[in-house]
């Protein structure tokens, strides 16, 4: 067993809803990881278990809905390309991934990483090497965009008119 996977310094087993919430957070991050980030993590792993493909990787469409007036009844705005994959590791762990775009390799890698993360030890490694830095990168990008937008905020001032 790879010693890194046994590192006790990371979060222990999570139960029930907490586990689900964590998986959602991880999958949301994986959907935003670049192909390179996913490849780098995978290439850096000492233990690369084989996987079988349960479905995909495949590209399809999701119909994106909006709401009338922003908050009213839903309507169909248009579609977006989505790639997804579901895989199973030799130990039985199943992983899924969905992401915008047509990168099927990225979807398959993300699904493998999701399956690996079913094991708490492995997840700790994945969190260290991919998820945490990725979350930081995304937060920094969002903050950068917000600051750039904030710099274009209009500061109104009223001209003093000539009356006393």
């Amino acid at each position: 067993m790879n010693t890194a996977f046994a590192d006790p310094g990371h979060a222990g087993p999570a139960g029930g809803g907490e586990e689900e919430a964590r998986r959602k957070r991880d999958l949301d991050l994986l959907a935003r990881a670049s192909r390179t980030e996913l490849e780098d993590l995978w290439n850096g792993l000492d233990d690369k278990p084989a996987h079988t493909r349960l479905r995909g990787p495949e590209t399809g469409l999701v119909m994106v809905r909006g709401r009338i007036g922003g908050g009213g009844a839903p309507f169909n705005l248009g579609e977006a390309t989505v790639s997804r994959a579901s895989v199973q590791l030799a130990d039985g762990a199943v992983g899924h991934a969905y992401r915008l775009g047509t990168d099927r390799r990225a979807a398959e890698l993300a699904a493998i990483i999701d399956a690996l993360a079913r094991d708490d030890g492995r997840r700790a490694v994945i969190a260290d090497r991919l998820l945490t830095p990725l979350a930081e990168r995304l937060a920094a990008e969002a903050a950068g965009r917000a600051e750039e937008t904030a710099a274009t905020k209009v500061d109104f001032f009223t001209m003093v008119r000539g009356e006393d």
Binding site: L54, R55, S86, Q88
Partner: peptide, 14 residues
């Protein structure tokens, strides 16, 4: 039930 859900589909869907 989970395993049954994910396995047993077409080997080559298309």
């Amino acid at each position: 039930s989970r395993t049954e859900t994910f396995s047993g589909g077409f080997a080559d869907p298309v």
